[in-house]
Amino acid sequence: AFALPGGFIAVHSGLVLAAQTESELASVMAHEIGHVAQRHIARMLGKQRQDALIPLAGLLLAVLAARSSTDASAALMVGGEGVAMQRQLNFSRDAEREADRVGLQIMQDAGFDTSGMIAFFGRLQTASRSYTEAVPAFLLTHPLTTERIADIEARISGLHYKQRVDSVDFQLIRARLRILQDDSPQGLREATVAFNNQLLQMNPGQTAAAKYGLALVALKQGATDRARSLLQEARVAVRAVPASEPSKNAIIPSLAIDIELAAKRPAEALKDADIARARYPLSRGIARQYADALIAGGRYDDATQYLRDQAQLYRHEPQLQDLLAKTYAAQGKQALQHLSLAESYALTGTLPAALEQLSIARKSPDASFYDQALIDAREREWQ
């Protein structure tokens, strides 16, 4: 995970799988939020501008020293660069320590188990031991993991221990990511073994996630009947989790729709999608699956109207344009199909491909006067 300018935080799916508990994942997220809250990127850029004067000063001194000693001149040049670089490394390590401290407070305020930060640091230390042992501490951008663990342990020593039970959603998402990261035949076999071992733990949350994972494996293997049965078992297992809050994630309904679509049962898929849309009105995935179900059921006019409305509301979503192109293709509307593909490419920043699609749309025999005008406008905008 890493923080970006503007307050954005990127999280790799591998992090979710690497974290063994929700508190461990929260510790990394809280750390990155700490970077954002303390404006570390902005401060780093400001410091870089200040430190840029150091190599310049070293260069000026080197020019003056060159008259008497070339060795001294070279030393001053290299020294100036080294001082500037070391100052940046020092700032980076200080920023990491500050993000740890702020992140720990964020974790505590959010009700997570603060020892999750120590547990994840320990796992990180094991994974990066060969690298950190080969590099001197003063050259690292982050403090030594042992130092960070000691600091966090000292800070939480006086806190009351608060156990945090992982949510069902966390377990389900980890199961899904395990499949999506490697859905090759070998990957599916390994996942099946892992999920079956998970069932042996007799933990309600783990059982629900394992059943869900096995259902997704079955879908990937084309066994839709088995997938449907396993997903129903996952639903039952979720309801059996003690003190479980209702799932706030559409992950189970989404898989149910995918199963029905794969089984060539568009009516059932549309029924499931309608229910899911009512329960998760803000889910973009469910919205697109609803359109998929309309297309699969041959309701192209309904799909077109729905997708046009969605595209007006969510103008920066290329998947909607892809679905529109798919709908227009089924209707034999070539010009509109390629116009939608052009919009999709443009939204992803692939302007050459977008312009090529506009060219194809212009040559389509069914291109209307309005279509030609829109093509002209888009060409002027994108060229």
Rank of each mutant, 00 (worst) to 15 (best):
D292F: 11
V193T: 14
A311K: 01
L216Y: 15
S92L: 00
A30N: 08
D258I: 04
A267K: 06
L219R: 00
I275E: 13
D272L: 13
A262W: 03
R265A: 15
V11R: 01
D292P: 04
R123P: 05
A262C: 02
Q321G: 10
R174G: 11
Q86V: 07
L374V: 14
T141I: 04
A30Q: 08
R129Y: 12
G349K: 06
E153S: 15
T145S: 13
R49W: 13
I106F: 11
G222Q: 06
F112N: 09
R87E: 09
A42L: 01
S364N: 03
F170D: 07
Q171G: 14
G349D: 12
E260L: 12
D274P: 00
A137F: 02
M85S: 08
P352L: 10
S254E: 14
G349P: 10
F2E: 13
V28Y: 10
R362C: 08
G187R: 04
K162Q: 14
L89N: 02
Q331E: 12
E133K: 08
G34Y: 02
Q331L: 09
F121N: 05
S283Y: 10
R378I: 00
A262F: 04
P253T: 05
R362M: 12
Q48P: 04
Y345C: 05
L231H: 02
A237H: 05
A62M: 03
F112P: 08
I118N: 07
D274R: 11
H316E: 15
H40T: 00
Q105P: 07
M29N: 03
F120K: 04
A19P: 06
F369A: 12
Y280N: 06
D109L: 12
A361K: 04
G34H: 01
S167R: 06
G349H: 06
R288F: 11
L374R: 09
S283G: 10
R129T: 12
R226F: 10
R239V: 08
T126Q: 13
V36A: 01
S157W: 08
S27Y: 09
A262V: 11
R155C: 12
L214Q: 09
V241L: 00
L140E: 08
Q319R: 05
A99I: 00
V165P: 04
L180E: 14
E381W: 06
R39L: 01
S157Q: 11
D225C: 06
E317A: 03
Q305L: 13
